Amino acid sequence: MSYSFEYIDIILLAMIAGFIFLRLRGILGKRTGFEGKAPGQFKEVIEKIKNEKTITSSDKFDDQAQKEFLQGAKIAYETIITDFSDNDNKITTSKPLLGEKILSQFNEALNERNSRGHSADITFIGINSAVIKEHKKNDKILNVTVEFIAEVITCIKDKNKNIISGDPEKIKKIYDTWVFSRDTTSSNPNWKLVNTLT
């Protein structure tokens, strides 16, 4: 007798489970095959929107973008000047900040200085001003020209440590016009120095 009650219980539970399943299916619906992923065409549209948004934000060189750029340009300026004062045979620390042409020119200047047995002592005091004089976009490349006014203590010594130019006790004001460049379509936000103007 107890066995019959157990069978009845199992049947009732199965009926309840079936009823709940049908109710959930009616409310939630059936899988269509697109859960967790978008159809191909829709994915292409989303990707296009993302790319256009990235390009637009990279192209934008408004007041805020210029302010942020100048902060980075000042750091780059000091890093490059300080690196060039090191008495190594080639540029090291600031290499990622330089375009190929400028890197080659700086390394040639270092080699020439070292071949003469000269050494440079440069103490960077600070930047008085950094002003954007021009910014031009050529296709996807944005070039920004910056005028720097900075103060340094500098002197060049020969192989016998005799001073041949500069003054180790005097602060000198220097004026530089540098051109920085970056590819606005690149995911790399870094700028590079591509030219120095006299």
Rank of each mutant, 00 (worst) to 15 (best):
S2C: 11
I11L: 08
L12H: 00
L13Y: 00
A17Q: 00
F19S: 11
L24C: 10
L24T: 04
R25T: 14
G26P: 10
I27G: 04
I27R: 00
G29D: 02
K30I: 01
F34Q: 00
K37Y: 04
K37C: 09
A38Y: 06
A38R: 10
A38E: 00
P39Q: 01
G40D: 02
Q41F: 09
E44H: 03
V45G: 03
V45H: 00
I46T: 06
I46A: 13
E47D: 10
I49D: 06
E52R: 03
K53P: 05
T56D: 10
S57H: 04
S58Y: 00
D59V: 13
Q64T: 14
Q66P: 07
F69P: 01
F69G: 01
L70C: 10
G72A: 10
A73W: 00
K74P: 04
T79S: 14
T79R: 09
T82W: 02
D83V: 03
F84R: 08
D86Y: 08
N89W: 15
K90R: 06
T92E: 15
T92F: 13
T92H: 11
K95P: 06
K95Q: 13
L97W: 03
L98F: 07
E100W: 14
E100K: 15
K101W: 14
S104F: 14
S104R: 12
Q105C: 12
F106K: 03
F106C: 08
L110M: 15
R113E: 05
R113M: 12
G117I: 05
S119A: 11
S119V: 09
A120E: 04
A120S: 13
I122M: 13
F124M: 08
I125L: 06
G126K: 06
I127Y: 06
I127C: 11
I127S: 06
S129K: 07
S129N: 07
A130G: 05
V131I: 15
I132N: 01
K136W: 02
N143I: 03
V144Y: 00
T145Q: 06
V146T: 01
V146H: 01
F148H: 01
F148W: 04
F148C: 04
I149N: 06
I149L: 07
E151G: 02
T154S: 07
C155L: 05
C155H: 04
C155M: 03
C155S: 08
K157T: 03
K159V: 15
I164N: 05
S165V: 06
S165W: 01
S165F: 04
G166M: 06
G166K: 01
P168Q: 12
E169H: 11
K170F: 05
K173F: 07
D176L: 09
T177K: 08
T177R: 07
D183E: 15
T184F: 02
S186H: 05
N188F: 05
P189W: 06
L193D: 03
L193K: 03
V194Y: 08
T196I: 15
T196Y: 06
T198G: 13
T198S: 15
